[in-house]
Design a protein around this nucleic acid. Structure first.
Lengths: 198, 198
DNA sequence: TGTACATCAGTGAACGCGCGTTCACTGATGTAC
DNA sequence: TGTACATCAGTGAACGCGCGTTCACTGATGTAC
């Protein structure tokens, strides 16, 4: 039953991306290795040909999720003015759970505290994802503000992560949407007063 | 072995508060009924004399945590001016994980997404806690802003929840503290521009 | 280029373990008279 | 107020179950000559 190198690599990627989707929709703690392997059309035993432990897959799955999200955001803001780019990042991030297809979910908001109970590798992946997100936003903010773009970006990311976390907890879509809307307005007010010459 | 009504009530409260601390420090998914009962100096079998399921305890433990947090905050701001009250709520909330004793932790930030995978009762408790927190902040904001105190309070709570969530994920205390500091500055900048007559 | 052997991806059963929950039992507390 | 019985908080063993992980096995792929 041995597979070719390219088959093996494709299988591995399939397991990682399947796991990523499952962790993000059901929570890291509620998805087992059997669930993941079955969803990837394989049996449990094959898991350890690709990963040394479940925890390693958790780290890789989140790394993949951050890559997907950041690549999407970078693509969406390419060619936009800094002000448009900032607005796009904020609204795409805030609406990540609303878009029916639920691709491009951010582990920071969707898994949140679960990441802080992961092993050191999982946490390192999460921190790196956070830093990439802050940097992306800071790059667009830099031309807009006199100083402190990075600090402002950090504050805005906290707001976005908190808003999406809270909106996901609320079972009522109306109030969940209000949380997102209030955070969006708050960020816009903040930006309006932080812009150069205001 | 039957205990008196008051003993029974005291035992139940002890289980709830023990569970609350354990859930907040280790995560809901990583604490079992045996762990909780042992920490409360009892054996596993007694659990179901007090709760119909583990999930019911999760709900009650979080309700207790919100009560503890809100009562503390209300006490701390009593007698303060609105501006001082807002500042106190924000800094007490942001430093909840830093204070060595780690009493008064907020389930929204510490458990976060885990609450969204709880049953409907758990989620309802979380939403109620969120609303109480927003209301407390909005009450102090109302005299300070011309309008939109509730919306602003909602945005600030998102920022605080996100900041504490992110700071807890980061294993490096220096960068974790920077996340909290940046969010604090961001909130202060927001308030400075939202105040009446500014 | 062909052949012989080593490698290893994937299978499916099995491992030990800890979980939430149930149960028969004990004996002090609560209740009815 | 005292007595007899019912209740039920707490114990500790046991239940079934699903988990992460291991293992012997299969057979196609990769490698050495």
């Amino acid at each position: 039953m041995r597979k070719s190198r390219s088959d093996t690599a494709r299988t591995r990627k399939r397991i990682v991306s399947t796991a990523s989707k499952m962790f993000l929709s059901e929570g890291v703690a509620h998805v087992g290795t059997r669930d993941i392997m079955a969803a990837a059309s394989m049996t449990q035993g094959g898991f350890y040909r690709h990963f040394k432990s479940r925890e390693q897959l958790v780290a890789e799955a989140n790394d993949a999720a951050f890559d997907l999200l950041l690549t999407m955001l970078e693509g969406e803001i390419a060619g936009n003015s800094p002000a448009e780019a900032v607005e796009k990042i904020v609204s795409l991030y805030l609406n990540q759970s609303q878009n029916k297809k639920r691709l491009y979910l951010c582990p920071l908001a969707i898994l949140g505290a679960e990441l802080s109970h992961g092993d050191s590798n999982v946490r390192a992946v999460a921190v790196r994802g956070y830093q990439r997100l802050v940097q992306l936003l800071a790059d667009s903010l830099k031309p807009l503000v006199a100083s402190g773009a990075h600090e402002l970006a950090s504050g805005i990311v906290s707001t976005m992560v908190g808003a999406v976390t809270l909106a996901n907890i609320d079972p009522d879509p109306v109030t969940a949407h209000a949380i997102l809307r209030n955070s969006h307005s708050t960020i816009q007010a903040l930006l309006a007063h932080s812009e150069k010459g205001s």
